[in-house]
Design a protein around this nucleic acid. Structure first.
Length: 574
RNA sequence: CGGGGUGUAGCUCAGCCUGGUAGAGCACUUGCUUCGGGAGCAAGGGGCCGGAGGUUCAAAUCCUCUCACCCCGACCA
């Protein structure tokens, strides 16, 4: 492609709206333009990248035996009412009405549509297992779209749904998808980690997220430094502390802490390590208010807490008024001692001795408090987020490694759905014994447009984007110096352009009447991985100049060897 | 949804406090020069100052409403 014919809308100045690197660079490189909050147009350059990611996804899904379909973006409310999600989904679901005032939604996902299709089309276990995928625009009306296409409302997604006669078959396909996803992200050229994830409201037995590791990621992930344990912090388990609780050494005593509310304030005021304090959170329970007790330096994990029998779902904190009624104090002075309600303590909190906690009296805390002596032994559970330095729970708890917390961008998610949708929508087949069985399902998503942003987030420098060969909008940039001045350069460049194109390279031929500096800056910004420069000086010697996007310096190569050298650079031959 | 901020040329922004002929840089057009890392000079084109209403002799500027966009928050314990 000739650069003079391409809408190369690069901009030098950073648009004010962009915050993350990928967002800035995608705008500056002329890949995307915003139309409304979380809604973007893909310009030719950006679309080329998107299409390359799509192509890899498509190839690998096909290789894994999945079949491509294309389902409607707009879906009738009836299906969502049948699955029960019309009322559950909330404002994230973009609802519309047609001219007959019938309800529809713009699909944020397609479980209902595919389940409806398959219950009509598949009748026998002989047709199973079957896996269907599509690559299509989704719409989710996010509370706060941000970071460009990273968290957009309209976004391109590959979603796949598998159907099975039994759980074993589902597990088999799930494993295939796990491997397929790993292949896809490896081919795209991303540093990623599969991470055990919460199955959320959907239930089911297994779920993995695929995260691109990047500091700007919105998710926190716990990784082990010794084994391959990796879990979303929402799910990561904390091993109970080693050893036994120490014996009390001092008598409990009240201590005045006027105006000290937060753990930070109280521990600084009393000159005590936050690790030796307790915080007490009052939440709604299934039978009245429940107290959740954590060590001062730990955070509540709402997902873990919600799963406890005593705790109401969804997790909800009580109002300050209720705090007053139950604990007779402000929220900043609650403590488990003397509370006449269910107390659930995190494992680390239950292990403390001689700790500090609220006295249930404004401006007062207690010190040298001890479970069993000063208050009853609590019910114990894992209800906290893991933190860096926690022992790894991997290898049945025998890993001996330590967890670290990293940020990740979720680019893929696979899970075993089970029969939630097939049951609600009566998607059944006859098995080999002629019995009607509800089909277990799996579902597998990849945020295709998000992958593009994640790739930039992970691969860029001060000059711009650095694409991997696999998803670059063009493989090679051909830059003639003095194209509009020198007949020799023009002739040689045209010739080389034809040679390279003929050899199958995807070439961006910069035939614009621009100064070299402008061309170099543009090509670096848009991240073309390989660059060839032709000039009078080199031509006289019979050489062109080659520079990889990550290379410090360019080097001369003989014109006759350009094709071979490029094949090598792209690792198409050894 | 709550709080804060911003809307002025295609982009980044000044002007607003203290009302009086709408600006700069970049981008764009033309010419000349320049030509290996975002050139120089000259001449140009381009604005319902987000929208509506109000105050005033006079509003980008003051007031009210409204819309859009951006940021933060939704865990004091």
């Amino acid at each position: 492609m000739r650069a003079s014919r391409l809408l190369l809308s690069t901009v030098r100045e950073t648009p004010a709206e962009a915050e993350t690197i990928s967002h800035k660079l995608m705008l500056r490189a002329g890949m995307i333009r915003k139309l409304a909050a979380g809604i973007y147009t893909w310009l030719p350059l950006g679309l080329r990248v998107l299409r390359r990611v799509e192509a890899i996804v498509r190839e690998e899904m096909d290789r894994a035996g999945a079949q491509e379909v294309l389902m409607p973006a707009v879906q009738p409310a009836e299906l969502w009412q049948e699955s029960g999600r019309w009322d559950v989904y909330g404002p994230e679901l973009l609802r519309l009405q047609d001219r007959h005032r019938r309800d529809f939604c713009f699909g944020p996902t397609h479980e209902e549509v595919i389940t409806d299709l398959i219950r009509r089309e598949i009748k026998s276990y002989r047709q199973l297992p079957a896996n269907f995928y599509q690559i299509q625009m989704k719409f989710r009306d996010e509370i706060r779209p941000r970071f460009g296409v990273m968290r957009a409302r309209e976004f391109l997604m590959k979603d796949a749904y598998s159907f099975h006669v039994d759980q074993a078959s589902l597990k088999e396909t799930y494993d295939v998808m796990y491997d397929t996803y790993s292949r896809i992200f490896r081919r795209v050229g991303l540093a990623f980690r599969p991470v055990a994830a919460d199955t959320g409201a959907i239930g089911g037995s297994a779920s993995h997220e695929f995260h691109v590791l990047a500091d700007s990621g919105e998710d926190a992930i716990a990784l082990c430094n010794a084994c391959d344990y990796a879990a979303n912090v929402e799910l990561a388990t904390a091993l109970p502390p080693f050893g036994k609780r120490a014996a009390p050494t001092a008598a409990m005593e009240p201590v005045a802490t006027p105006g000290q509310h937060t753990i930070e304030e109280v521990s600084r005021f009393l000159k005590v390590d936050p690790k030796r304090t307790l915080k007490t959170l009052l939440v709604r329970g299934t039978g009245g208010v429940v107290a959740l007790v954590l060590r001062g330096d730990h955070e509540l994990n709402p997902i873990k807490a919600e799963k406890l029998a005593h705790v109401a779902k969804p997790l909800e904190f009580v109002t300050p008024g209720e705090v007053e009624a139950v604990a007779h104090c402000e929220p900043g002075s609650i403590g488990p001692a003397g509370l006449a309600i269910q107390v659930i303590a995190d494992e680390s909190a239950a292990r403390l001795a001689d700790f500090v906690c609220g006295a249930n009296k404004d401006g007062q805390h207690l010190r040298n408090v001890n479970w069993g002596r000063d208050l009853p032994e609590p019910e114990v559970a894992d209800i906290r987020n893991v933190i860096a330095g926690d022992p790894c729970p991997g290898n049945e708890g025998k890993c001996n490694g330590t967890l670290e917390i990293r940020r990740g961008i979720e680019v893929g998610h696979i899970f075993q759905l089970g029969t939630k949708y097939s049951e609600a929508m009566q998607a059944t087949v006859l098995d080999d014994a002629g019995r009607t069985v509800v089909m277990p399902m799996g579902c597998y998503g990849i945020g295709v447009s998000r992958v593009v942003a994640a790739a930039i987030e992970q691969n860029h420098d001060d000059n711009g984007i650095i694409w991997s060969d696999a998803i670059a909008p063009f493989q090679v940039a051909l830059v003639p110096i003095g194209y509009h001045k020198s007949q020799a350069v023009r002739t040689a460049a045209e010739e080389l352009y034809h040679t390279l194109t003929g050899a199958g390279f995807d070439v961006l031929f910069d035939d614009r009447n621009e100064r070299p500096g402008v061309m170099f800056a543009d090509l670096d910004l848009i991240g073309i991985p390989h660059r060839l420069v032709l000039g009078d000086k080199g031509l006289a010697k019979g050489t062109a100049e080659y520079k990889g996007r990550r290379d410090e310096k360019a080097r001369d190569i003989a014109l006759a060897n350009v094709t071979t050298e490029l094949f090598q650079a792209l690792r198409l031959i050894d």
